[in-house]
Structure formats: structure tokens, C-alpha cells
């Protein structure tokens, strides 16, 4: 393997590469989503206890998984960006954050829509829902910090440090919330622990999670392209690009 990673890590070369990658990931996401939805709605059997309402897990669980995965990936990019002083990785971290926040929000709302028919309330202070709420705060903090610092270099690095601090804290927060939850609630409500989940249900969930993953990659690449255009507006390669755009050449 002798790939020149540094060549691809400059915005100038990454911009067209990302443009080529986006349709692939978008199509993969669409195909996987159709397959996942088909399994989720047509093949997976009705749940004994929860009836048809359980089918919400086909969006709820993948969204919750992605919200956590994206935070970890974001912190990973942030760490690389800080260690190697690489512009692209910081931009990737910045591009991932809004998508992660959206998935967190989806997980929260669908969790509450699942809770209403199952437990009779829109919200329970369940350990998972509570941690998800705190994760949303962490995402919003990251986005707010980056957007309120004008100098992009400083915004990148400050955001990266915050993401790292956050990722160290996430396990501690999760543990403390779980501890708090067992003290105050006992084990009366145990969300998501399905004792006998049919294999098709699990498969549907996994495929939907993969679909969300591919969607995330596609959207993050789209956003990173926007960020590059906005940041490097005055650089030569962006100017060339826009001249091509005027001439009608699509890139």
C-alpha cells in the first residue's frame, strides 16, 4: 500500500473525490433502507407483547446507535486533526456534528413515541433516554462553540478539544445516569431489552443501521464540501471551480 494520504487530505483534491463518492453512498443508503424497511414491515413478525408498535425500533435503535457512533467518529477526527494539525479532519468533525445531533433528536422523539403506547407516558427518565438527552446537549455545545468562534482555525481546534473532553466524559455520564436510574426507579421499566427477539427483527435493525450509516457518510461528505467552499472562498482552486461552474462544466 503506497497511497499518498496527504495528497487526499488537502481540500483541493478531496473536494472532487468526495463529489464522486457521494452518489455511491447515497445509493447504498437508499438500497439498504428499502431492504431494511421491507424486512421490518413485511417479514418481521408481530411482537407478542408490543403488537405492531414495536416496529418503531427499526428507526429508533439505528438512530440511537448512529448518534453514539457519530460522536465517537467525530472525536476520532478531532483527535487526528489536533495531533496532525490537519485541516480536513477538523472539517470532517465539524461536518458530522449536525447529523449526529439530528439522529439524537430522532432517537429521542421516536423513543418517546414508542414509550407512549408501551408505558402510557411520553417520557420516562430511563437511563438510555436520559443519556441520549445529555448526548444531545453535548452535540449542541460542540456546534454552538464552533459557530461562535470566528477564526476557523481556532474554531476547529477548540471544537476538537471539546469533542475529546466529551468523549472521555460520555462513559462516566452513562455510568452515573445508570447508577442514578437504578436507585430511583428499580427495574420496573427496562427499555429495549427484548428477551426473545426474532432473528428477522435483529436483521432488519442491522440493515437499517447500515442504511443510516451510509446516509451519514453521504451527508457528511456533502457538508464537508460546503464547508470547504465557504472557507476557501478566496483560494485559487475554488475560484477555478466556480469559473468552470459558470462555463457549465459540472464537477
Amino acid at each position: 500500500m503506497n497511497i499518498n494520504w496527504f495528497k487526499y487530505s488537502s481540500p483541493q483534491t478531496f473536494y472532487p473525490l468526495a463529489g464522486k463518492m457521494i452518489p455511491w453512498f447515497a445509493w447504498l443508503a437508499a438500497i439498504l433502507a428499502v431492504a431494511g424497511l421491507y424486512i421490518g414491515f413485511a417479514i418481521a413478525p408481530t411482537d407478542f407483547q408490543q403488537g405492531e408498535a414495536y416496529r418503531i425500533i427499526f428507526v429508533h435503535v439505528p438512530a440511537a446507535w448512529m448518534s453514539m457512533v457519530i460522536y465517537i467518529v467525530m472525536a476520532g477526527w478531532a483527535a487526528i486533526g489536533l495531533a496532525l494539525n490537519a485541516r480536513l479532519s477538523a472539517m470532517m468533525a465539524q461536518a458530522l456534528a449536525p447529523t449526529g445531533a439530528i439522529f439524537t433528536l430522532i432517537a429521542l422523539v421516536t423513543g418517546s413515541l414508542w414509550g407512549k403506547p408501551m408505558w402510557g407516558t411520553w417520557w420516562v427518565w430511563d437511563a438510555r433516554l436520559t443519556s441520549e438527552l445529555i448526548l444531545l446537549f453535548l452535540y449542541l455545545g460542540f456546534i454552538a462553540l464552533q459557530s461562535s468562534i470566528d477564526d476557523p482555525r481556532r474554531a476547529d481546534r477548540a471544537g476538537a478539544l471539546l469533542a475529546l473532553v466529551g468523549v472521555v466524559n460520555v462513559p462516566i455520564i452513562y455510568f452515573s445516569v445508570k447508577w442514578w436510574n437504578t436507585l430511583h426507579q428499580g427495574s420496573s421499566i427496562n427499555m429495549g431489552a427484548a428477551p426473545k427477539m426474532a432473528a428477522t427483527m435483529l436483521l432488519g435493525m442491522l440493515i437499517m443501521a447500515l442504511a443510516f450509516w451510509m446516509y451519514t457518510v453521504a451527508v457528511a461528505l456533502m457538508r464537508v464540501r460546503c464547508i470547504m467552499l465557504e472557507r476557501e472562498r478566496t483560494s485559487d482552486w475554488v475560484k477555478e471551480l466556480s469559473v468552470q461552474g459558470i462555463a457549465g462544466v459540472k464537477s
Binding site: 446537549f137 455545545g141 447508577w179
Partner: peptide
Amino acid sequence: LLVLPLYIPVLIF
């Protein structure tokens, strides 16, 4: 906004 979520474990314990 940045600090309060990180304070949660301290608050809980």
C-alpha cells in the same frame, strides 16, 4: 452550554 452536561455525574453522586 458546554460545562453543565459535564457536571451531571458530580450532581448525581
